[in-house]
Design a protein around this nucleic acid. Structure first.
Lengths: 339, 339
DNA sequence: CTGTTAGCGCCTTCAT
DNA sequence: ATGAAGGCGCTAACAG
């Protein structure tokens, strides 16, 4: 027998088992009846030759890749692990692999990155901030199944979107500050300019204030960008400017860390002098002292739901256009409630 | 012109541009000189037809996939983002895609998961706890380029390994407790039984004590498993058992969170009553009160170095067998030093 | 510099 | 239930 150094192919297996390659293909795919006896022979041959089918060949023949693409702005933050974990679990469950790529710090791109250019993935998961509206339109017009995460599709493009309930939760947590803790001058730290989550949260904030006849004061709205340093700087600036406030909606938990630092440096007590609340319920929310009152976000569910939608799309099943995952208030101590 | 609904192929482009498919292939790959004029024509045709090469076809033809596989035990924890971020940046830089898969909670597997079964990836990044020694041996014997992260290869298999300096750093931080803060009864919280990082840290702990003539007391060694709840339970148990201690090496920062909680519940002051130190320097180390003294681990560098090694392997260049990344002591307040 | 022609390894009708 | 043969789209010699 000739010892080819390259890995075994379906031909080698067929020869070794004394059958045709079609038969081998059939036991590989189990989609057509094959006699017990032959199956055994073929499997034995596969084992002996350490055979393993070449993905590229099947992909070419079937024009499916069994691969999902995940496109992100960048790989950072506490939310990333649970999100990816959720995505991976559903993908694996359906027999799909996961390809990952980032748009990088250049911001949303108009084009898909090379890896995902059609045919490398059967479907795409697009996270907010990675692909511009033009990019989404373009990709969609190519007929690539895709779902958007934390990002609304442009115009009325029927691209499924999975995101979380931001507005109502923000309104609820801000109203908690107003009603339960008698706060009236509440700072709102924004997300980055084009961040949809941030925009919705700001609407919730405004609604809460308006509903309680508290005027919206522009001076109390400052940048937080979901970043602890930016948040800290903003609070320090407010303090320096002598702007009074008795509550802070930090935008997210990360930013709350910066708020804590700024307040501590100014010898202001949380929650006695200032109530502070976050958003996300990251693992550090429980670690902060006092424990942070925040909004719980089921980020792993976002990944799970988005991937399910994508699978439905790939299988040409109907699916929801908008999936809004519920968020819940988590009362801890930083608002003023007893722990 | 016939309107085929399927995406354009290289043939379509060739016909549209009035050249042969080889020419199209050449402008695609830019490896052979092609006249300016023809390049322009071809590119114009590609644009007009919205052509995008099918990855499967090139893979099959070149028997390379330009894909790297990353195998993890599971997707959790603070260290995951920076690790993946490092990997992705280097991979992208070399034009490689990243395929991700997990072994799941079933622990180290003896087989590669389907996705990575040879030919789906040109190289593999194997993270500790995802593939057993047998699995590593088997995969290596198949000739698949691979590098291990935080895991030593079995026997003397020449599989490159990238990990961090655990022992010396642990010894240094424990000695800091002994020398600078006069601690003598220092608790050591272990990692999971087969965790190599944990084992090295324990050796460092033992060296530190031995070097200062402090007897190793088994009662002071308890499970921490890099988990805040397990760590908390262990400390509570020690307290309940009336075992005295004046210092705690938590194993990692996550576990330190549990230690803080247990101590706080017992009304013990950090660092006055007990010095506490962690390992990893995760973002929450700075958030804890008092700020956690710990060991900084360049986890993104682990990803970067490992991927570089893998690229070298793939290109048949020589590479280091063992890469030990340096860790550094980060003194904050939980050991007793002024902040 | 450009065209022609074999494959790459597998799936999938179509026969049998 | 099994075999034979064409084709998936692209690259890589090989000619010219």
């Amino acid at each position: 027998m000739i010892n080819r150094n390259s890995p075994a192919t379906i031909d080698d297996v067929a020869r070794h088992a004394g059958v045709s390659i079609s038969t081998v293909s059939r036991v590989l795919n189990r989609n057509v009846p094959v006699s017990e006896e032959v199956v055994a022979k073929v499997e034995e041959a596969m084992r002996a030759l350490r055979y393993t089918p070449r993905a590229a060949a099947r992909n070419l023949a079937t024009s499916r890749t069994n691969t999902l693409g995940l496109l992100l702005a960048e790989i950072v933050g506490d939310f990333f692990s649970p999100l990816l974990s959720g995505i991976e679990s559903v993908a694996a469950q359906h027999g799909y692999d996961l390809l990952i790529s980032t748009a990088g710090r250049r911001g949303p791109q108009n084009q898909l990155p090379g890896p995902f250019h059609k045919h490398n993935a059967d479907g795409l998961l697009i996270f907010a901030g990675s692909l511009s509206d033009d990019g989404v339109r373009d990709t969609h017009s190519l007929g690539v199944p895709m779902v958007l995460l934390h990002q609304t599709p442009p115009d009325g493009l029927p691209v499924p979107c999975v995101t979380i309930e931001n507005k109502a939760a923000t309104r609820a947590i801000v109203e908690h500050l107003i009603v339960s803790h008698k706060r009236r001058r509440i700072v709102f730290l924004t997300g980055e300019p084009n961040n949809e989550d941030g925009s919705w949260r700001e609407m919730g904030y405004r609604e809460a204030l308006t509903h309680h006849n508290i005027p919206i004061e522009p001076a109390l709205i400052a940048p937080g960008h979901f970043d602890r340093h930016i948040a800290q700087t903003s609070i320090e600036q407010l303090l320096r400017d002598g702007i009074e406030f008795d509550g802070v909606f930090a935008g997210d938990d990360e930013a709350a860390v910066g708020v804590y630092a700024a307040l501590r440096n100014a010898h202001l007590k949380i929650p006695d002098d200032v109530s502070v609340v976050g958003f996300d319920d990251q693992s550090l929310a429980r670690v902060l002292q006092p424990a942070l009152t925040t909004v719980h976000v089921p980020i792993d569910q976002v990944g799970i739901e988005a991937t399910r939608r994508l699978m439905q799309l790939i299988q040409n099943e109907p699916t929801e256009v908008l999936t809004l995952l519920p968020t819940t208030l988590v009362i801890r101590a930083s608002c003023g409630c007893p722990e």
